[in-house]
Write a protein that binds this DNA or RNA. Structure first.
Lengths: 186, 186
DNA sequence: TTGAAAACGGAGGGTGCCTCCGTATTATTA
DNA sequence: TAATAATACGGAGGCACCCTCCGTTTTCAA
């Protein structure tokens, strides 16, 4: 088993980046040939790396999710742990905004492998958020009895309660901020 | 302004029926050429009647909705008004089941005309349901303070709370039946 | 340096979208 | 009823996209 070729890896990256731009901007229906063009790569190369649209979606989404997870793990409670939480939730809302279309197009059935990957990633997020929450509680800044899952669930509920539109993000963030303010120790 | 041609009207009907079958069964992405074939009509005829996919969706949906409205208006309170309500709600769930994909594909922006049409149809449904509810209350069979809008909202909430799947309909109907049982005068 | 493994690109066959226009059908007029 | 004008029909054709296949090019390792 020889070392993977460098050009293959580079093209893979280029394709994922191109897909993020093209499929994010033009909606999940955008042409895969446009993605290949944007990546400066032949259509055959795209299909070799990603045998269908969905696999490509997953690759983009997984990479973005990983970024978000790392961001969460890098957060330091510092002076204002609640503000750290707020910032991270805002970033997550932004991700939902760009990925909504793609996520809707993902089949409900995932491979065992993807399921495991996602479970692991959300596990890491939950641990990171819980660490921040615990720090806030220890400092007497955040009320007790709140779990990371509560935050995530609330955030997704706000995201999906309203249909996409020009005001969507502002609306979601406003509700979210009210909720976050409610987390402060009275 | 002469009388509309009979063949045109007939083809329009055939196309709507074909669209209901093809787009209902094969999902909203199914080919419009398949719809035309199924209707036994040229593709040009389809496009003359329905300049794009969405207009065709609306036509199918509007017709189904009209059927449901007429069904509601035909209901007689009779001995068991609550059972009449239950039957109608079940029919509505069935409609949601077949139309879910299509509805999702409908653009959020509708013409003023469609909006008015739908508003009028739901108005008629509300009146019909309220009539049944009032009859039930008068007979002492249904608790007071329930409005048609409550029923519709509850039904849609159950429909959209769960993702589509093999158990979807049974699950929705079960929750709905529990709710309806709760409407009985204690 | 060299050759096999790995990856590349894009032509090609299939399908769908939508338009356009010559042909056929229908309603009206005489 | 026959002629005519309005209306509708069908499907060929042009374009884009999907995906596969394979001759060519690049890379890695011996």
């Amino acid at each position: 088993m020889r070392k993977p070729r460098a050009d293959a890896q580079k093209n893979r990256e280029k394709l994922i980046d191109a897909a993020r731009e093209v499929l994010g901007g033009g909606g999940p229906e955008a042409s895969l040939e446009a993605v290949a063009r944007r990546a400066g790569v032949g259509i055959g190369t795209l299909y070799r790396h990603f045998p269908n649209r969905e696999v490509l979606f997953h690759a983009v989404f997984r990479q973005d999710l990983e970024g978000l997870v790392e961001q969460a793990e890098a957060l330091e409670p510092g002076e204002a742990p609640l503000e750290a939480v707020r910032g991270w939730l805002h970033a997550n809302v932004a991700l939902v905004e760009t990925k909504r279309g793609m996520l809707g197009a993902l089949s409900v059935v995932m491979s065992e492998e993807s399921k495991q990957t996602y479970a692991e990633l959300t596990g890491r997020v939950v641990r990171a958020l819980n660490r921040l929450l615990a720090a806030g509680v220890a400092r007497g800044q955040i009320r007790e009895g709140i779990a990371a899952e509560d935050l995530l669930q609330t955030m997704y509920a706000f995201c999906y309660a309203r249909e996409p539109g020009p005001e969507w993000r502002a609306h979601v963030l406003r509700l979210l901020d009210i909720f976050i303010d409610g987390l402060r120790r009275a």
